[in-house]
């Protein structure tokens, strides 16, 4: 492979499949939001209608995780192939993941404040999931700070990829070791399953699944769009550098 192939940021044109996919995501998410807000739920004490947050808060976590795994995957591919497009993909996936992570953290904090900690003044609690997502967001932040501190773009791509992979290595500790060692009110903590028969009403289960799939598809749509925009931006800026 020549170096021009490696630096090539031209992406092939989108086919009909992608258009169908975007229409599907738009319709799917609209239905999920409508059913999520208007649909029937088991109106339990304490939780009451905040249970609807399940459809939005939990899928945002999934999206953060998927986004970071996409970043890690493309970081690995970058180190192996040295193709510049993987750097663009890794950066944009981390960006979209960070946005969804902040949303997931915020919805989680507000939800906990008005259910578990009703009548107290606790906004920030030591819940392991909260700690975990905060650490993940710190890693995302550090990733962008590192990118900003590097001038040469090949070096930036390579070192950012190394950092992304290095940070990914600590995730088993954050996901499996710490949550099982800390006390928590969160479903799925201390080794108990999160979505067993007891935890979720049957009529909510299918909406939840649909919301999870919908959010992951929404991530993919935003992410692929952002990759195209960023690649085009880089190409334009390099075109302007020519004499």
């Amino acid at each position: 492979m020549t170096s021009t192939d490696r630096d090539n940021l031209m992406l092939p044109a989108r086919g009909i499949g992608y258009r169908v996919f975007t229409v599907l995501v738009a319709v799917w998410m609209t239905v999920v939001v409508c059913v999520g807000i208007l649909g029937h739920i088991s109106n339990l004490p304490i939780l009451e209608h905040t249970a609807r947050n399940l459809y939005f808060h939990v899928p945002m976590w999934f999206t953060l995780m998927l986004g970071w795994f996409v970043t890690a995957y493309h970081s690995l591919r970058l180190l192996v192939t040295r193709r510049r497009i993987h750097d663009v993909r890794a950066e944009q996936a981390a960006l979209v993941a960070t946005v969804f992570g902040v949303l997931g953290l915020t919805t989680g904090i507000v939800w906990a404040r008005f259910t578990w900690y009703m009548g107290t003044n606790i906004w920030w609690n030591g819940d392991p999931r909260q700690v975990m997502v905060t650490v993940q967001l710190l890693i995302c932040g550090a990733y962008f700070v590192l990118r900003g501190a590097l001038d040469d773009e090949r070096q930036r791509a390579r070192l950012a990829a190394v950092y992304a992979l290095f940070a990914t290595v600590t995730m088993p500790f954050l996901m499996y070791v710490l949550p099982r060692r800390m006390e928590s009110l969160h479903p799925g903590a201390e080794g108990n399953p999160a979505f067993s028969q007891m935890d979720i009403a049957p009529e909510m289960r299918w909406v939840f699944y649909a919301a999870a799939v919908g959010f992951l598809m929404l991530f993919w749509w935003i992410y692929t769009l952002r990759v195209r925009v960023r690649a085009a931006e880089i190409r334009v800026s390099e075109l302007a550098d020519w004499p």
Binding site: L138, G141, A142, V145, L146, A149, L159, F166
Partner: peptide, 25 residues
Amino acid sequence: LSAIIARTVSSGPLLAVLSFPVLIP
């Protein structure tokens, strides 16, 4: 991480930013 920051332009507080999230476990 210190090998990474040796390559950056201004390495001042960068090691703390990069290493604290990784060091939490």
